[in-house]
């Protein structure tokens, strides 16, 4: 049985936790707004570039280009995007188990991990992490994605990785985000599809065009994947903090009920004690007289 003072103490504790939760909720929702604006900005250029890449893959002669040519796979590079901080529910767990699942299908993996959570997770499982980036400043993401794209291309062209996957969380709505594993290199060739009559010309020539297109496409793709993940993370945190806030309010309510009931019980007990002793006293008086 906890005393009145203990309950009072617990209510105070939960109340201050609730305040922290509310603050985190507000921070996450502000960050979500910003992340969403960034994501909505990058999506159109990504989709258009993806369409250009798909169009070009139907073009004769692209299958021999280094970015399209299928090689014998000796090692696969995974770019896994996780978050640095927790308290975002199953967000990190989902993306990491998705990545692990994909790797366990007989891949000789090399992992580039973004975010401290992912680093811990893959380190614990003795995976081959070749590079880690943590504590990313939001302002540096754009140029970071560009550097990363160039690094991936270098690795790919120097035969250190024969295929490249990015693992990210696709943001669909505030309540719905889906982890994805997407193959970025080599690019898929659509030659088996009906090669449609296209009079599109590429200048200066097709290979030079691809050489310029692919770094831009990869840059935009990585930037988009990061924006998707970042937006999902903030949404997950916001939703989680929302339910945590509700739980805290409920707990406070229950504890307050308990506190009041205990207080009433104490008063009742005191009253009955007083009445009882008064009765005893008055009985004693009547005996005396």
């Amino acid at each position: 049985m906890s005393s009145l003072r203990d309950i009072r103490q617990r209510i105070d504790n939960v109340r201050s936790t609730e305040k922290i939760i509310k603050a985190m909720n507000m921070v996450a929702s502000a960050k979500l707004q910003r992340a969403r604006a960034q994501l909505e900005g990058v999506r159109p250029i990504y989709h258009e570039l993806k369409r250009v890449v798909t169009d070009i893959s139907r073009y004769k002669g692209t299958e021999t280009h280094a970015f399209f040519e299928k090689r014998k796979v000796k090692s696969s590079l995974y770019v896994v995007i996780t978050s640095d901080r927790g308290l975002s529910g199953s967000y990190n767990a989902n993306i990491m188990s998705k990545a692990l699942d994909h790797m366990n299908h007989g891949k000789n993996e090399k992992i580039f991990v973004i975010g401290a959570k992912g680093h811990e997770y893959f380190k614990k499982r003795n995976k081959n992490i070749i590079r880690t980036v943590t504590n990313i400043n939001d302002a540096h993401v754009y140029y970071g994605a560009e550097r990363l794209a160039n690094w991936i291309i270098e690795l790919y062209l120097s035969d250190e990785a024969d295929e490249v996957f990015i693992v990210y969380t696709h943001f669909e709505s505030v309540l719905n985000y889906v982890p994805y594993v997407e193959q970025v290199l080599p690019l898929p060739i659509k030659s088996e599809e009906y090669a449609y009559e296209d009079d599109m010309k590429y200048e200066p020539d097709i290979h030079a065009f691809i050489d310029h297109l692919i770094p831009l496409y990869l840059h935009m793709n990585l930037f988009r994947a990061f924006s998707e993940s970042h937006t999902s993370e903030q949404a997950a945190r916001m939703v989680n903090m929302d339910s945590a806030g509700k739980n805290a309010s409920k707990l406070i309510e229950e504890l307050t009920h308990m506190y009041n009931r205990r207080r009433q019980a104490n008063i009742t007990q005191e009253l009955s004690e007083i009445v009882g002793s008064a009765n005893v006293l008055s009985k004693g008086e009547s005996h005396d007289s």
């Binding site: 009079d199 590429y202 065009f209 297109l213």
Partner: peptide, 16 residues
């Protein structure tokens, strides 16, 4: 590889 001017009715071209 230089400036390129485009008028309506141009041939289909993609360029860097």
């Amino acid at each position: 590889d230089g400036d390129m001017g485009v008028l309506p009715g141009h041939a289909r071209v993609s360029t860097v």
